[in-house]
Design a binder for these strands. Structure first.
Length: 273
DNA sequence: AACATGGTCAACCGCAGTCGC
DNA sequence: TGCGACTGCGGTTGACCATGT
């Protein structure tokens, strides 16, 4: 069935977001939450498609995001989780509070892959590289590859185990799984030096109905953001009221200074702008 | 100083999954 | 039950920046 485009392409702006757009979006989402992303740009007065707004929010504007490079611990956790989950970046991100799937994916492709190759580890299989390309000394130094772990974890849906990318598959129970020791050992917000993390460092105010992994993680992960946001309130706002007045251009009436929310709670407007 | 090359990361695209009618 | 709408995810692209020549 031919799908309709996610938004009318005409008049939709693409490319980098401006500070003004960011502020409009954050202001809107913090004061009204999102009921359906398609309406968000309209109500927020943005010439973007809902998808773009969602991406911008989840990858960049969410108050709980950490900024900056992944710490050693986070990196190690990513490698470990990748060995278990493969390229399921959203699942991996769910175990790394304050990190987005996009961020982790980028970091994997640009840093970790290289690092692993240098160490003689195949970033795809997490086993030793093929002899032709493997630096012998490094390979000998290396602990046994995490393939063992993958085998241990092959107790779930076998259909998942043959990932099209030949990745370590078979660990798809993660949605319900208890906090792993690895993630439990990860002190949220404790590993970054980013100034933003001081202000962020916790629960996402986003709580889409389907509770993304990150959100689910956040839900079980109370943090200081509770102090500056009534987290649930964000998404529990009176959408009916908003929508009833949703005569297209009502967004202009939204005039909440989002930074007022954060005054005194360590939130630094400069970090955002 | 100017240009070329490589690295990084934000953003886009298209598919898959889920939900409601 | 099937169809359409919507969201979320992963792969990919392209602009920008840093470094090397």
């Amino acid at each position: 069935m031919g799908r309709q485009p996610c938004c009318e392409k005409i008049g939709i702006k693409k490319g980098p977001w401006t500070a003004e757009e960011d502020q409009k979006l954050v202001t809107f989402l913090l004061s009204h939450g999102h009921c359906c992303w398609r309406l968000v740009p309209k109500l927020a007065g943005l010439l973007r498609c809902g998808k773009s707004c969602r991406l911008r929010w989840t990858n960049y504007l969410r108050p709980d995001l950490k900024r900056g490079l992944l710490s050693e611990e986070e990196e190690a956790l990513v490698i470990d989780l990748h060995a278990q989950l493969g390229n399921r970046w959203s699942k991996i991100a769910a175990r790394l509070p304050g990190r987005t799937d996009n961020e982790i994916k980028n970091h994997w492709n640009t840093h970790i892959k290289k690092k692993l190759k240098k160490m003689g580890i195949d970033p795809v299989t997490h086993g030793p590289l093929a002899p032709a390309t493997q630096p012998l000394a490094l390979a000998q130094q290396r602990d046994p590859p995490q393939v063992v772990r993958e085998e241990e974890r092959c107790d779930d849906d076998p259909s998942k185990q043959a990932s099209s990318q030949g990745l370590a598959a078979g660990a798809d129970e993660d949605d319900d799984v208890e906090e792993t020791p690895a993630s439990a050992a990860q002190p949220h917000g404790a590993t970054t030096t980013s100034p933003a993390s001081a202000a962020a460092g916790s629960v996402s105010p986003s709580c889409s109905s389907s509770a993304s992994g990150a959100d689910a993680d956040a839900a079980a992960w109370p943090g200081p953001i509770d102090l500056f946001l009534e987290v649930d309130g964000i998404m529990d706002m009176d959408w009916a009221g908003i929508l009833s007045g949703c005569g297209d251009d009502d967004a202009a009436d939204i005039s909440v200074d989002l930074f007022d929310h954060y005054a005194g709670d360590g939130f630094d407007e400069q970090v955002w702008m």
